[in-house]
């Protein structure tokens, strides 16, 4: 064969290897996104499992907070049903649950007996940590989606992505208003009913 045929073959081989490299990179990122999503699910599950326990422990002390407790239980049931309905629906339900929970924990301030309960303290540590883990896994998920989407949109990997059908990832956005809402802590004595 002539020398130029070898050159062409060489170029083609390099192009194919380069294509493989980009494709594998995209697959790696997509798997990272999937894995990060699974992490969020694990933490949400743990949150859902902790809440009945929490309500159980708190109930005895909080006769005057029926409404707050019921709101938490209801929000939890909605959130459990939203599992598997995609990031947007799940984020909404979880955002509401987070709001209800932080209202409950703010109300706890009024019950010194409860705050001294060992069982409750242990539960509170687990709950705090689970809330943190949820937000950290969400953070990692969103970072992964950001990197993945970046790669899909940027030249030259966008060519490979559109040829092989990579779709953009969806961010896990929590309703800012719910998340940032500062629960009002009142320092009045609870009114006897």
């Amino acid at each position: 064969m002539a020398w130029w045929a070898w050159v062409i073959i060489g170029i083609v081989v390099v192009l194919i290897l380069w294509f493989f490299g980009i494709y594998n990179g995209l697959v790696r990122l997509r798997n990272q996104v999937k894995n990060a999503w699974a992490q969020i699910d694990v933490q949400l599950k743990r949150r859902h499992d902790l809440i009945p326990n929490l309500v159980q422990t708190v109930q005895g002390y909080m006769q005057y907070e029926r409404a707050t407790l019921e709101a938490v239980t209801k929000a939890r049931n909605i959130a459990v049903q939203a599992v598997g309905q995609g990031p947007a629906a799940q984020a909404k339900a979880e955002g509401e649950l987070g709001g209800a929970l932080s209202r409950l924990l703010a109300v706890v301030e009024r019950y010194p007996d409860l705050k001294a309960n060992q069982n409750f303290l242990a539960l509170q540590e687990q709950l705090t940590s689970t809330e943190n883990k949820i937000s950290f896994s969400r953070q990692f998920y969103n970072d992964s989606v950001f990197n993945y989407n970046n790669r899909i949109q940027m030249v030259p990997s966008n060519i490979v992505a559109s040829m092989t059908g990579f779709k953009q990832g969806e961010f896990f956005k929590v309703e800012e208003a719910e998340e940032r809402e500062v629960p009002k802590v009142s320092f009045e004595q609870p009114k006897p009913s």
Binding site: Q126, N132, S137
Partner: peptide, 9 residues
């Protein structure tokens, strides 16, 4: 828990 949180992050 803190170690696990950072592991997740």
């Amino acid at each position: 828990n803190v170690v696990e949180e950072m592991k997740i992050a």
